[in-house]
């Protein structure tokens, strides 16, 4: 188990380094930030001074070296726009995104797994087919369009929920969160649903497919032959087996929800990291973009690592073979 963890940790670090190179190289080519930052009527000397101040005149490898060196010290550069450390700006926005992603995940898991199991147990019933039909819808609607539809229905037509913003927040574990106040919660609901719908559809389909497969296994028939109650068969024998693939997906999806809540945050004016990224891309605020991408990679890699650990705890077969290896 320890060997396995160390090996996985090594792989994770490699992934982060590889991503650092890609991110840096990629961002270097998306345009000259000086053009954006400086008054178009600025003199050549002013441009040169700014370029030097930002370290943009140095060769690429040197910029990268400095970037890595600083990154290891927690310094991902200073925002061209805000004049403050990029990481600090992003971390300020992180709680909002985290909260949105976690609530969306809870919604998609809490609703997706039961619906998926239900549909998997009764694939030919009307309810099973309705659930599947709904999941296809959730799958295929474009996220931004679905978001605007939600706003139109619940904010504009019905007036039940606010259309954007974060509402009243309260401190929780050192972060500002919305879900502890009524106002915040009402602001949180629509964006969380919007972010959740796609994942929920994914989880429904995955859970249903796995439930159907597991139900055909001899061990489920054997469990029935033992005279177990239907509830125990579903909640223990079936659920434990389908949790293995489902946990993997949940982990991967949590990472991507945090990382790519961009559309939802933009549509609902949710002040999270995604919205910051869009703003930064518009302004070519390179350090913020780099810091955003690096932080996102770090989050995804750590979540994957955690998923692997949970996965190995869930599946005794992996635990054993990996312990031997």
């Amino acid at each position: 188990m320890i060997v396995y963890l160390v090996r996985r940790l090594g792989q994770s670090i490699l992934a982060i380094i590889a991503m650092a190179v890609l991110v840096f190289a990629g961002v270097y080519f998306i345009g000259n930030p000086v053009d954006v930052l400086i008054n178009p009527e600025a003199t050549q000397a002013e441009i040169l001074a700014t370029t030097q101040r930002l370290g943009l005149d140095k060769p690429l490898y040197e910029q990268f070296g400095i970037f890595i060196w600083n990154a290891l010290h927690g310094d991902l550069g200073t925002s061209f726009v805000y004049g403050r450390p990029a990481l600090e700006i992003i971390l300020e926005r992180l709680p909002a995104t985290m909260e949105l992603a976690v609530v969306a995940l809870i919604l998609s898991v809490g609703i997706g797994i039961p619906l998926g199991i239900w549909a998997g147990l009764r694939p030919n019933s009307l309810s099973g087919k309705t659930i599947m039909g709904g999941s296809i819808l959730g799958f295929s609607l474009p996220n931004f369009w679905q978001g605007m539809l939600l706003i139109l229905i619940f904010a504009v037509l019905l007036g039940w929920l606010p259309a954007g913003g974060r509402g009243e927040t309260r401190a929780f574990l050192g972060m500002q969160v919305s879900f502890l106040t009524w106002d915040g919660l009402s602001h949180l609901l629509l964006p969380a649903i919007n972010l959740a719908l796609f994942k929920m559809s994914l989880i429904i389909r995955l859970t249903r497919a796995n439930t159907r497969e597991v139900c055909l296994q001899d061990y489920v028939k054997f469990a029935r032959a033992k005279g177990l109650a239907g509830r125990r068969i579903v909640l223990v024998h079936v659920l434990k087996n389908i949790m293995i693939p489902v946990v993997t997906i949940i982990g991967l999806e949590l990472g991507s929800m945090i990382a790519f809540a961009i559309v939802t945050e933009t549509v609902f004016a949710w002040p999270g990291m995604g919205k910051l990224l869009i703003d930064s891309i518009n302004l070519l605020d390179r350090p913020v973009i780099v810091a955003y991408l690096m932080l996102t990679v770090l989050i995804i890699v750590s979540i994957n690592l955690m998923v692997d650990v949970i996965y190995s705890l869930l599946d005794p077969r992996i635990r054993l073979s990996e312990m031997k290896g």
Binding site: D218, Y219, K221, F222, A225, K226, H237, N241, L314, P316
Partner: peptide, 25 residues
């Protein structure tokens, strides 16, 4: 049937590799 299954009538299946649930002790 449920009260008879496993209690008064038991069944053993063909493939022992598949009859026990792999994730339960």
């Amino acid at each position: 049937l449920r009260h008879l299954r496993g209690k008064r009538i038991a069944m053993i299946f063909q493939d022992p590799m598949m009859t026990l649930n792999p994730v339960l002790r």
